[in-house]
Design a protein around this nucleic acid. Structure first.
Lengths: 339, 339
DNA sequence: TTGTACGCGTTATCAT
DNA sequence: ATGATAACGCGTACAA
């Protein structure tokens, strides 16, 4: 627990000199610097970042605000991989991460700015937040730099990173159309997810472009959950034998659809083609392996942190959004329809 | 950015009174407290935990030290679920989490105590560390309270949480023996993993108890990685057609073994029974679904944080270790051997 | 019940 | 090139 004071005493100099020597200022004699560095090492000194942050008014800390950090199963791998990217990128530039988990209830108890200011975070990365969560508006109103993952919000100090969800959905649907499908349904997430709207847009655009009908009753809601998707798909597929393909807004929901199809004794892909979204680890191992739209989750996190730290470093306006490409991975759940 | 000073000025009292009023001390007039609370709210005040920590010498922060936080795939879900548990438990008692990711290289650059003291963490939870990592000894030598996940280290300020790996392995092997298997191999992780030793011990003990031979050449190393397990299993299974069952020290390696078996045209479970360890999400979806030993990862994290915070709160000696039960989940990769 | 004064460990300003 | 001193925001003896 040695402090610069201890070093100063031991080395016979003032605290000022110690501080400057250790921080690499040029206006300190080489000999005294050496001496100070030696005694610092000898005393096993480590600086107290708390004190430093207090006086400098910079904490070198980023808040990682994750909504519903839990074992929902749905976003698990997604959240984790994004986090890895954030962590790598942030530590590259010397920022530490402090983890806040929140949910709709907590958000009512403590305001966003309070949360941030208490811990003096310099900026925030926001993940898994829903469009109707109170924090979104608070973020925009506050002047704490923030980057959203997968929510397209912009503001003076607000940016976001996402993948091209519209185009991703288009790729998926185009793939099905190219195979010859014309009756294509969609299993969507829920209305509070920004990506849901985007993916639906892509789905509808691609159908329209191909001259196919867009039918509202062909779009189901699976709440991004496997069991919900299954129970939504089962009656639908039963009632609509003409449907030969389903585009799912997440891999997990695709799993649910696969289960429903199995119960209806529909063969995949012969009777029903399925395309997912995300490319979670699981999708490679399903039976048959799932065709899906792959998002680079790690990269999303990495870019998010990069965006944020660049906002933090510069006062000049800076690029505040990033849209990553995603790509279609064709596996074995898609084939031409039987006629 | 209002401070207690601002409140004091506005409310016409001293900072001391503000501090005491806001911290719920009893020796402050109800009327003044009310007045102070009102102006605090009006000024949108939030306390600066940095300053508070500095003076109290308590940061209310736990360091979450994760080794190799990356997309290795192997420990992904494991790490994530443990983290969820830690987070829930820690936030229950008002601790925040600061994320440190480390690896063998980083550990040489900055010492454990330095890392901790810089950020003034009160305690640490250590995850995914290898037995030959330098930090382990440093943790023991330091007096910063620490709880390890899955490494059985004890010390004055050091505890751990783990599952009963020996017994878990025994359950798995017993299950195979009960089915009638006698030639049972093991796919182990690597020598730097504490759990590897434990699981091997259970494997050998159960064989011995059943009067079966323990053969060193029946124990392979898959480094906890799927491809490594596959390439280790392939030649082994080819050379040892007498082997009818393999116990794997992780589900991921079980996947590798399944791939090797497929290449050798061995049917699972008819020609080869496989038991995994962990019960990752994936194992439910493999083809066929994997029989495995399930660990409650969330609970491990929850207990780890609980252990640590109780060590932090009390100066009295306290329970410093926790061993959780795990259970065998029989799915479809195990069956009696063909004769 | 309230206020004064000091200290936590550090950096920054201004002298010297 | 070096040192005194103030300041960051807060908690707390001690005094009143």
């Amino acid at each position: 627990m040695a402090t610069i004071k201890d070093i100063a005493k031991q080395a016979g100099v003032s605290v000022t000199t110690v501080s400057r020597a250790l921080n690499g200022y040029s206006d300190v004699n080489d000999k005294t610097r050496k001496h100070i560095e030696d005694t610092a090492k000898q005393l096993n000194y480590s600086p107290n970042t708390l004190a430093r942050s207090l006086v400098m008014n910079k904490s070198q800390t980023i808040g990682l605000l994750v909504s519903e950090l839990n074992r929902s199963g749905a976003k698990d791998m997604f959240t984790y991989e994004v986090m890895c990217g954030i962590n790598d990128s942030a530590s590259d530039v010397g920022y530490d991460l402090i983890l806040f988990s929140t949910n709709s209830v907590k958000q009512k108890q403590k305001s966003y700015t309070q949360l941030c200011r208490e811990r003096q975070v310099e900026g925030v990365i926001m993940q898994g937040i829903k469009m109707d969560d109170p924090y979104i508006q608070e973020v925009i109103d506050s002047n704490i730099p923030c980057v959203f993952v997968d929510v397209e919000v912009e503001g003076k100090d607000v940016g976001f990173v996402t993948t091209d969800n519209v185009f991703g959905a288009q790729m998926a649907v185009k793939h099905l159309i190219n195979l010859g499908h014309t009756e294509i349904a969609m299993m969507n997430g829920h209305d509070q997810a920004h990506v849901s709207a985007k993916r639906r847009k892509g789905y509808e655009r691609e159908l329209t472009d191909a001259g196919l009908h867009v039918r509202d009753e062909f779009v189901l809601n699976g709440d991004f959950l496997e069991p919900m998707a299954e129970s939504a798909a089962y009656p639908f597929l039963k009632a609509h034998p003409e449907v030969t393909a389903i585009f799912c807004a997440s891999d997990l929901m695709a799993l649910g659809v696969m289960k429903a199809a199995k119960r209806l004794e529909l063969k995949i892909p012969e009777d029903l083609s399925i395309v997912g979204f995300d490319d979670i680890v699981l999708s490679e191992y399903t039976n048959p392996p799932l065709t899906t739209v792959s998002q680079d989750k790690y990269q999303m996190g990495y870019e998010a942190a990069k965006l944020l730290t660049s906002m933090l470093k510069n006062d000049v306006p800076v690029q505040k959004k990033a849209t990553l490409d995603n790509r279609l991975i064709v596996r074995e759940t898609t084939a031409p329809p039987k006629h």
